[in-house]
Amino acid sequence: MPSLLFFRALPQSFQLKSSVVMKQKRITPLSLFGFAMLSLLFFNSIASADSEYFSPPRNTPKAVAHASESQACVEPIETMRRQHMEFIKHQRDETMHKGIRTTKYSLLECINCHVTYDENQQAVSYKDEQHFCSGCHQYAAVNIDCFQCHNSKPTPSVVKPMPGHPEFISPITIDMAKQAQQTTGGASE
């Protein structure tokens, strides 16, 4: 309110020629708007400093990850989709400040379970668009801050068994995922 009063009161208080006032009135909100837009752009460019690694997928991505019939996530998928960040953040503060290192909601376990392998059967990092977290986050244009510090690849000692091992649960390979994406992409178009 006070600022409105301020702008409305300007012409009287400064006894300016009306042409100047008209011009000024036009310039002020316009330039403010321009400045706001520019600063938005600027902060956005800082926030997505790593965006060069990503090229956004055209269709909703399917998570390419270690997930199987024999092993469910810690919460129903719908809950996880909506609330995974809250679980992780809560756990983060519990661990950081209270030293509670349970595994149920720990980021480490997300990473260790949702593993995507590349053609050489190596786990991919978040820079790869097939990474479990990156695929969706890129699509949703939500920047993840986790992997500036946390490793996005599974801990070597707990990497899930590779093909040939009796406990191996077949992960979806990159090729299969690409095929799946192509089919779904084709269907939706």
């Binding site: 006070p2 009063l5 301020f6 009161a9 009287q12 208080s13």
Partner: peptide, 8 residues
Amino acid sequence: LWMMMERK
């Protein structure tokens, strides 16, 4: 500044 510049 506002109070300085606004006559009221």
